[in-house]
Deep mutational scan, measured.
Amino acid sequence: RQGFVPAAYVKKLDSGTGKELVLALYDYQEKSPREVTMKKGDILTLLNSTNKDWWKVEVN
């Protein structure tokens, strides 16, 4: 499932696989259909980080 999360809630990881991955630093509950819920410690695939406030991710 793809959607947006606050950029301040995730940290980029060095995956070494060519995929950009991020680590969820905090729990986040989606507040609109365009967002996704994540739990602290989740590893997500980063799809787009051009917006400084909201990053598009895919929940694996």
Rank of each mutant, 00 (worst) to 15 (best):
V22K: 00
T17P: 14
P33Q: 08
L46A: 02
V22E: 00
G18W: 09
K39M: 09
K19M: 11
D42M: 12
L13Q: 05
D14R: 12
T45F: 13
Y26N: 09
S32W: 06
V59A: 12
T37F: 05
E58R: 10
Q29G: 07
V36K: 02
K19A: 11
A8F: 08
L46Q: 00
A8R: 15
G18C: 14
G3T: 02
S49G: 10
K56D: 03
T45E: 09
Q2W: 10
W55P: 01
V59N: 09
N51I: 06
D14L: 12
K12D: 04
K19I: 13
Q2Y: 08
E30P: 14
N60V: 12
N60R: 13
S15L: 14
S32E: 08
G3A: 04
P33K: 10
N48S: 13
E58C: 09
T50L: 09
V57T: 00
K12R: 14
A7C: 07
V36I: 15
L25G: 02
I43S: 03
L23W: 06
S32N: 12
Y26V: 11
G3L: 05
L44N: 02
D14W: 13
V57K: 00
M38Y: 01
A24K: 01
I43R: 05
K39W: 11
V59P: 07
V5W: 00
M38K: 00
E58W: 06
V5I: 08
L46W: 02
A7N: 02
D27T: 06
G16W: 11
S15F: 11
T37K: 04
V5H: 00
L21K: 10
F4E: 03
V36A: 06
S32A: 08
K19L: 13
L44A: 07
L44D: 00
V10E: 01
F4I: 06
S32P: 04
D53K: 15
G18I: 10
D14K: 12
G18L: 10
G3F: 09
K31F: 06
S15T: 15
R1W: 06
T17D: 14
E30Q: 14
K12G: 04
V22P: 01
K31G: 07
V5N: 01
L23S: 04
A7V: 06
T50D: 15
E58L: 08
T50E: 14
S32G: 11
E35C: 07
L47Y: 03
L47K: 05
Y26K: 14
R34P: 05
N48C: 11
E35N: 05
Y26S: 08
D53C: 15
V5D: 01
E30V: 07
K40E: 07
D42H: 05
N51M: 09
W54P: 00
N51W: 07
G41Q: 02
V5G: 01
A8L: 11
A24M: 03
Y26A: 12
I43G: 01
T37R: 07
W54Q: 02
M38H: 00
E20I: 15
W55A: 03
V10K: 00
D14M: 12
L25Q: 04
G18V: 10
L44I: 06
D27V: 03
A7R: 12
G18E: 14
V22G: 13
N60C: 13
K11M: 15
K11L: 14
E35Y: 06
N51F: 08
K31R: 15
L13Y: 09
E58I: 08
P33V: 09
L21S: 07
Y9H: 06
K39S: 09
K56N: 06
P33H: 10
K40N: 04
A8W: 09
G3C: 04
R34K: 12
N48M: 07
T50N: 12
L13M: 10
Q2L: 07
S15H: 12
P6R: 04
S15G: 13
G16E: 12
S49P: 05
Q29D: 14
Y9K: 06
K31L: 09
K12P: 08
M38N: 00
V10T: 04
L21F: 12
S49W: 10
L46N: 00
A24I: 02
G16N: 14
D27I: 02
E35T: 08
Q29T: 15
R1P: 05
L47T: 04
Q29E: 14
L47E: 02
A7D: 01
L13V: 10
D27R: 03
V57W: 00
